[in-house]
Computed example of a mutant assay.
Amino acid sequence: MIPEKVLKQYGCIIKEYECGDFIYEEGMKSSSYFQILSGKVKLNNFSEDDREFIQNIFEAPQSFGEVLLFIKETYPTNAIALTNCSIFELPAKNFFTLLKDYPQYSAKINENLSRRLHYKMVMSQHIFSKDPGIRLKALMDYFKHTHCTKDPETGYLIPLTRQQMADLTGLRVETVIRTIKAMEKDHLLKIKNRQIYY
């Protein structure tokens, strides 16, 4: 994303978060651009019965929360550290000055936002499918293109636990486990040391 030296030039600070810390909470006013230096972050909501629904997962060097800066809305999700994290934080005013001075980063952010919108459209298309394999395949396709590194022998490593896959698709974790085993049997993915390669 935006290089560290450019972010520092516009006054960013680096904040440290421990696993489970809230970076921001649902309903807070958006005021900063966030970019991950190290670690992973999840965006989530909780239902009335405290069930978690994960909207997305981000890792270095991805950014998050910036879409709300453009429309000056409050956050519709929580941002929570999935691991210990170091995160660049740049005030909104400085962020927009940076984009004006470096339009190439504006184009990159538009590309990333478009990819996330595409993911949301694809997932909403399949979220009501009765076939859990269709939901999981859509999720893995997205992560394959945005988060994964390819192993020449085994394919793309999906960086998600079974529980995270359940929370991202609205499925039960037992259903995810059973479906993944069936997909492996059908040669749609490989499992090695409990990790999923797609």
Rank of each mutant, 00 (worst) to 15 (best):
E111W: 07
R115I: 08
K100W: 10
K120Q: 11
D101P: 03
L99I: 08
E111R: 10
R116Y: 11
K93N: 14
K108L: 13
S114Y: 10
F95K: 01
L98W: 00
S114F: 14
L90D: 10
K108V: 05
A107W: 04
F96K: 01
Y105M: 01
K120T: 09
N110A: 15
E89Y: 05
L113V: 08
L90R: 05
Q125D: 14
A107H: 09
N112T: 12
S114N: 06
E111L: 13
M123L: 05
E111P: 01
I87G: 10
M121H: 09
M121V: 07
S124A: 14
L99G: 08
C85N: 08
F88C: 03
S106H: 13
L99E: 03
K108R: 10
N94K: 13
I109W: 08
Q125S: 14
P103H: 09
L117S: 09
F95D: 09
Y102D: 05
R116P: 01
N112E: 14
S106L: 12
T97V: 12
L99N: 06
L98P: 02
T97K: 11
F95Q: 04
K93L: 10
S124E: 15
A92D: 14
S114W: 07
R115P: 00
Q104H: 07
P91R: 02
S124I: 03
Q125F: 10
P103N: 03
Y105V: 00
L90V: 12
M123E: 03
K108E: 10
T97H: 08
N112K: 15
N110G: 13
K93D: 15
K108H: 05
E89W: 02
S114A: 15
E111H: 10
F88V: 01
I109Q: 12
S86P: 01
V122N: 04
S114P: 00
Y102Q: 06
L98Q: 00
I87C: 06
N110L: 15
M121G: 10
K100R: 13
L98V: 03
F96I: 01
M123R: 06
N94A: 13
K93E: 15
S86L: 12
I87F: 04
K93F: 11
H118E: 15
I109Y: 10
Y102I: 02
T97W: 02
Q125P: 00
I109C: 09
P91K: 04
E111V: 11
Q104G: 04
H118C: 13
F88Q: 04
Y119T: 00
K100M: 08
A92F: 08
Y102E: 09
T97P: 00
K93S: 13
E111I: 15
L113S: 04
S86N: 14
P103R: 06
Q125K: 13
K108T: 06
K100A: 11
H118T: 10
L90P: 09
F96Y: 04
